[in-house]
Simulated assay, not measured.
Amino acid sequence: MLAARRNGRDPRPALLRLLVARYTAGRGHSAAERQRFADLAMRLFDVVDLPTAKRAATELATAPELPYALALHLARGPIAIAAPVLRLSSALDEVTLMALADTTSPDHAAAISARREVSPLLAKKLAAVLHEARGELRSLPQPRIEMAEPPASAEIVPDVGAAPTLPAPPAPAPLVEAAPFHATPAGFRAATAMQRAILFDQIALLPPLPMSARLPRAGEATLGKLELAAMRHQPAVLGALLEKALGVSADAAAGILGDDSGEALVVTGRALGIPFDTMARLIFLIHPTLGRSVTRVFGLADLHERLGEMSAQHLIAAWRGGARRAPALRMEELPAMRSFGQKRRRSETPVNEANDRNRRGG
C-alpha cells in the first residue's frame, strides 16, 4: 500500500481483488472470518471504481459461503453490481428477496425473476412489481401526433343505403402544450427516477449538436474555481461559474445546484468533460449527504459512465432554452477562400506618390 501510494496509484482495487480471490479459494470459514471478510469487503466496495466492483460481485455471486450482510449490501447497490448477486446468490432467502422487490428498482426485480428457482409467492410479487412499473411507463406523457385535415373542397357523398348520419360531436377544447419536464433543471429535479432513466435512453439516440451549439471543455482554471467555491460553501459564486460555463440563466444554474440527487451536476460535468473523480469531489462538497449512501455513489458513477458527452450537451441545450452560442466572428467577416490567391491592391498614400515622383526624376 505504501509503495502504491508513493507511485500515485490507488491500492484499493487490487486489495479487493486479492481479498475476494483469497476468500473464494478457501472453504470452511468460521463465523468470525466471515464477519471480518464482510466488513473489509463492504468498505472496499464502497470506494473502488464500478468495473472493479462489478467483477468482484460477479465472482462472489456463486460463492457458497458468501456472508449474508455482504450479499444484502451488494443487492441494494446499483443494478450493475446487484444483478449477479440477485440472480445467482444462495445467501439471499425468500423473505429478503421479497423485501428487495418492494424497496428497490424494477431492474432489481427483473434480476430476481431470472433466478433458477422462484416460489409461487415470490413470482406473484415480482409480477405485481413489474406490472406496476410498466403502468408507470404507459402513464408518461406521449408526444402529440397531429393529423392532417382534409381539404375544404372535399365533399363526402353519403351512401343512400347507409345508416342515418349522427350529429357531429362538439369540438374538443384546444390542448395546452405543456413543456417537457426536462426543459428546465427544476422540472428535471421534480421528475421521477423512471422518467429520468427513459430520458437518458432517448437523448442517447439523438445526433450530435452542431459545432456552434457545443460547449467547450472546462479548463484547469475553471475547475480550480469550482472546487474553491465548493470548499468555501459559496453557492452564489458556484452559480455564477456554472452560468458562465454552461451559458444558462441564473435560475437554471441555481436549479442545477439545488438537485439533491446529484444527477444534474453529473450531467453538467459530463457536458464539460470533467472526470468523475473531480466531479465527485464537487458533488460531495455541495451535497455532503450523498457521500453517506453507497447506493447513490455507485448510481452517480454508473450514470457518468453511461451518459455520453453529446447526450449531456443535448440536455444542457434544453436548459439553455435551445439558444446557441454566437461564434466569435460572423461568417461575413471571415475572408473567403477564393480571396487568398488574389493580389492585394496597393494603397494610394502620399508616401507612394512621393516615391513615384522620385523615380520619375521630379
Rank of each mutant, 00 (worst) to 15 (best):
A253R: 02
A123N: 11
I112L: 01
R232W: 06
T349Y: 08
L40T: 10
I274T: 10
S311Y: 05
A178E: 07
R324T: 14
P180Q: 13
R22A: 04
A336V: 08
S113F: 09
P288H: 04
G161H: 13
I145T: 01
P170K: 12
S249R: 07
D46V: 10
A328W: 07
A191F: 01
A236P: 10
V267A: 10
A186W: 02
V85A: 02
R144G: 12
A318F: 04
A280C: 09
A252P: 07
P207S: 10
V160D: 13
A236N: 01
P84K: 03
T349Q: 01
R189P: 03
Q35F: 09
A91R: 11
R325L: 04
A354G: 15
A154E: 13
S339N: 11
F37W: 14
S212L: 01
E146M: 05
P151W: 10
L272N: 00
K125S: 13
P120E: 04
E146Q: 09
R292F: 05
F181A: 05
A80M: 14
A271L: 03
E243Y: 08
I112N: 06
H182P: 04
I274K: 01
P170R: 10
V47W: 04
D259A: 12
R345D: 12
V294D: 06
A254H: 05
A25Q: 05
K124W: 07
A61F: 13
T268P: 02
D260S: 09
A110N: 10
L175D: 08
E220Y: 04
L205C: 14
H314I: 06
L199R: 00
P13E: 10
R330Y: 05
E332F: 12
A109F: 05
L199S: 01
E117F: 14
R346P: 01
P120A: 08
G28V: 02
M310I: 11
T192N: 12
R5N: 11
L290E: 06
F45S: 03
G308Y: 00
A318V: 09
A191N: 03
F298D: 05
T289D: 12
I274Y: 00
R43N: 02
E305A: 07
A221V: 05
R281A: 06
P216Q: 07
V118Y: 00
Q234A: 15
T268D: 11
L18R: 04
R6P: 00
T268R: 06
M337N: 07
P275T: 03
